[in-house]
C-alpha cells in the first residue's frame, strides 16, 4: 500500500516537474511574443534597468575585485614554482573574461535580482494587484514581466563587463604589490592573449544568463500561489532554479563556443 503511495507521489513529482517545464516554456514564448509587440513600456524598462544594473553594480564590482585578488593570490605561488610569473596576467585575464566574471555576476544576480523579482511579483500576485491591472486594462505581463526580463537581459552583460574590469584591476593590484609589473605591461599582456573567441562567447552567454534569471524570477513570482507563504517559496525557488539554470546555460554556451571557436 505504502509502495503504491510512494509510487504515486513520485509519479506526481515527475508530472509536476514536466508540467513546470511546460509552463516555463509557455511563459518564455509569451515573453517573446509580448516583447516584440509594441508598445514597449520604456519608462518601466529604464526603471528596471536602473534597479537591476545600477543597484547591483556595487555588489558585482566588489565581488569581482575580490575574485581577482583571490584568484591571483591562489595561483601566483604555483606559477612562481614553474617560473611562469610572466604568464600571470594572461592566465588571470583569460580565467576572468571567459568564465569567472560571467559566472560570478550571474550567480549574484540570480540571488539578488531573481529573489527580488520572485518576491515582488509573488506579493503582487497574492495581493491580487496583477488581477487589478488586468481589470484596469493594463497588460500586466508586458508591464511587469517583459520590462524586468528585458532589463535583466540587457543589464547582465554590462555588469559582467564591469565585473571583468574590476576583477582584472584586483589581479593587477596583487601583481603590482607582489611583483614588479606596470599597468601598461599588465593590460598589454592581458589583451595579448585574449582573442575574440574568449570575449564574444562570454558576452553572448551573459545575455542568456540575464534572460534565464529574468524568466525564472518572473515566472516564479508571477505564478506564485498559496497566499503569503507562496511569496517566500517563490523567492526561494527563483534563486535556486535560476542558479541551476545559469550553470546549465553555461554548459551549453561552452559547448557551443567550442564548436564555433575551436577553444
Amino acid at each position: 500500500m505504502i509502495k503504491i503511495l510512494t509510487q504515486s507521489t513520485q509519479f506526481k513529482e515527475i508530472k509536476d516537474f514536466f508540467e513546470e517545464i511546460g509552463q516555463i516554456s509557455l511563459f518564455t514564448t509569451r515573453f517573446f511574443r509580448e516583447a516584440v509587440n509594441p508598445p514597449v513600456e520604456w519608462k518601466e524598462l529604464f526603471r528596471q534597468c536602473y534597479i537591476i544594473g545600477n543597484q547591483s553594480l556595487f555588489l558585482v564590482t566588489v565581488t569581482g575585485f575580490i575574485m581577482g585578488l583571490v584568484l591571483t593570490l591562489q595561483v601566483r605561488p604555483t606559477m612562481l614554482e614553474f617560473g611562469a610569473e610572466s604568464y600571470m596576467p594572461s592566465m588571470v585575464g583569460i580565467s576572468i573574461i571567459r568564465e569567472i566574471g560571467p559566472m560570478i555576476t550571474a550567480l549574484i544576480c540570480a540571488g539578488k535580482i531573481g529573489s527580488s523579482m520572485g518576491a515582488e511579483l509573488g506579493s503582487m500576485k497574492v495581493t491580487e494587484q496583477i488581477d487589478a491591472m488586468e481589470v484596469s486594462g493594463t497588460n500586466p505581463f508586458k508591464y511587469l514581466v517583459v520590462t524586468r526580463v528585458l532589463a535583466c537581459t540587457l543589464m547582465l552583460p554590462l555588469l559582467v563587463i564591469a565585473a571583468d574590469t574590476v576583477g582584472l584591476l584586483g589581479s593587477f593590484f596583487i601583481e603590482y604589490t607582489k611583483g614588479a609589473v606596470t599597468p601598461v605591461l599588465f593590460f598589454n599582456k592581458v589583451f595579448m592573449t585574449i582573442e575574440f573567441g574568449d570575449l564574444l562567447p562570454s558576452t553572448i552567454k551573459s545575455f542568456f544568463f540575464g534572460l534565464v534569471i529574468g524568466i525564472v524570477g518572473c515566472y516564479k513570482g508571477y505564478t506564485s500561489k498559496k497566499g503569503t507563504a507562496g511569496v517566500g517559496t517563490a523567492a526561494n525557488s527563483a534563486v535556486v532554479v535560476a542558479s541551476l539554470m545559469v550553470f546549465l546555460v553555461d554548459l551549453i554556451a561552452v559547448l557551443a563556443a567550442d564548436i564555433f571557436y575551436d577553444l
Binding site: 529604464f46 526603471r47 534597468c49 544594473g53 545600477n54 554590462l158 564591469a162 570575449l199
Partner: peptide, 27 residues
C-alpha cells in the same frame, strides 16, 4: 536614476568596445 543608468551603460559599453578594439587591433 535614468542619468545614472546612462552613465553606467555608457561606461560598460565603452569598456566592451575598448576590449574589442584592443583584440581586433592585435589581429
Amino acid at each position: 536614476n535614468t542619468i545614472r543608468l546612462g552613465i553606467f551603460v555608457t561606461i560598460a559599453i565603452s569598456l566592451f568596445i575598448a576590449a574589442i578594439y584592443y583584440i581586433g587591433n592585435r589581429q
